[in-house]
Design a protein around this nucleic acid. Sequence first.
DNA 1: CTGAAAGCGCTTACAG
DNA 2: CTGAAAGCGCTTACAG
Lengths: 338, 338
Amino acid sequence: MSTIKDIAAEAGVSVMTVSNVINNNHARVSPATEQRIREIMTKHNYVPNMAARSLISKSSRIIAVLLPIWHVSTASILRDPYAGQLAGYLEEMLREKEYYVMLCSFENVDQVLMVQRTWQIDGMILILPHEDTVTRGLIEKTQTPLVVIDRHYDDLKTLSVCLDDRGGGYQAAKYLLEKGHRKIGFAAPAIYESSVIRDRFEGYQEALREYGLKEKEEWLFDSVIQQEGGETVAETISRMSDRPTAVIATEDLLACGIIKGCQKRGIQIPQDLSVVGFDDSMPAKLITPGLTTVAQDIREKANLSVQMLMRAIEDPSFRDEYRILPVKVKERQSVQEV
Amino acid sequence: MSTIKDIAAEAGVSVMTVSNVINNNHARVSPATEQRIREIMTKHNYVPNMAARSLISKSSRIIAVLLPIWHVSTASILRDPYAGQLAGYLEEMLREKEYYVMLCSFENVDQVLMVQRTWQIDGMILILPHEDTVTRGLIEKTQTPLVVIDRHYDDLKTLSVCLDDRGGGYQAAKYLLEKGHRKIGFAAPAIYESSVIRDRFEGYQEALREYGLKEKEEWLFDSVIQQEGGETVAETISRMSDRPTAVIATEDLLACGIIKGCQKRGIQIPQDLSVVGFDDSMPAKLITPGLTTVAQDIREKANLSVQMLMRAIEDPSFRDEYRILPVKVKERQSVQEV
DNA sequence: CTGAAAGCGCTTACAG
DNA sequence: CTGAAAGCGCTTACAG
């Protein structure tokens, strides 16, 4: 493999002249020389060694996409279609900006900090943050530009990209209320612990209040997650004497689990129970009936996150920005008028 | 950030002694000195700089997970639940072996080669290979250890991990035949172009032959992919006068699309049409009826791929191994006896 | 517009 | 068991 030295030797110039063409310092090298050097570089398939560049520049053009390890499941969060899609978009967009993406699962803050220093990582994006203590710790301890997706802390300087979660909860409930529903349940992991979920819950409460209603304790399904959690909810509902006529789930997979569990027990969707999900990820389109869900624009979320990160890398003073993306109910067939 | 020099200075030794403890050359440093140096290292949160190490060693401990860009869809293949799950397992297992994972989407061979040289990447794993020409080109041109998942070429020296695709096609058809089906369709992307699909198709043919049957041209649905493709198949079937009673799809998403499309048109699953999928990925469990599918062990596939790659990195003569993982029909509710 | 020198943080022979 | 020297492939001031 050829090095800058070989190229310089063949071109009859110094290595620093070659370095200048690599770095597009047009002012520092004559067009003719540049032309000649470029030809020699392509002829030899020359590619600059990032290790050497990184050693000097203290930067690597590597962005770490941080994947928390969720202890609810043994599998990586990339199994989640929402996470996979997000990671895919991030990779695509970062690559366009000539950054390299390192996938990095972690359990605690120190692991992230170590990887960052090991590679002089230029920036990090955290998707599907799990525990608040870990997430807060990371935000507080890291010096590297970090964009947190789907979590925000008012008391910390952070770059975060979230959804209008309160609005989403509100819209979902309002949508059902307008369809005539008055007995509306709410299924979520950890309603009172995660800010995202709490916001959605508060939006739901607000809509109920507008109709002079209040949530009913029994119809709040807490600590349920993914499909399995949804099936548990279905089972619980099937045993109730006073059932809700509709349920809002804070995640499509959870909604799908509810639908699946109900169908298994002869509870018809949407005739016997209406269901609204959250995200509009792949499963929403897959199942029958199609899932009516609070849709987000995942591509736009990725795009905004990358933009924020790029700006943060360039501007060290840009370390505190909170962006909220709109959501919108995507109608399919899982809700019926009553 | 502290360097090896700082640590050496504080410990009162030379940098090379510190280097020896970093690299666990126990023979070259006394236990007492090692102990002292280790304490200083942890005190300062010292982490070796990989750029510097990589510059000398010509290796990086980076493994590239290669993601072909499929032109059938604008989204990254990570949106596919099978790909996401696989990538997640790979990351997890490689991290356990203290390798770093670089995510790397690409359209042509040169892009991969460039990234490899830029970072001195130690090994690569290709998932969901698309075009044969690109895949072959990559295998032929790269010097770096490469494991190809789900594709094999008899005429090339390759490390590949595949399924028993022929057996899978056979098992799926046999399963349906034993349930009394005689009119069995087959839906796939590019039946005659991809070896994986062709093998499944041949297994299907073999099972039919055992029952004195032959595939019927009309019931071969070619060039259909993912959910959209499945819905097209359903539409075609709905318009047929002589319909198949069962269909095998070479991908769960495709099978789900068929089911969805049928349900939309009042064709009951499994009463009017039985469907068998392939992979046993997340959607199979999600839909109603549950999808009977040719199941593979994705975790084992990831595990075997990582093991092969590790061996290839250690042993330059290990460049040709073809491993076939077994598959097994996972029964759910999408097939009915006739 | 071009070059010689120093150095990024580490490891690899080579001596002792 | 320990160290001084050279060097990996680049870039960064500094001169001209």
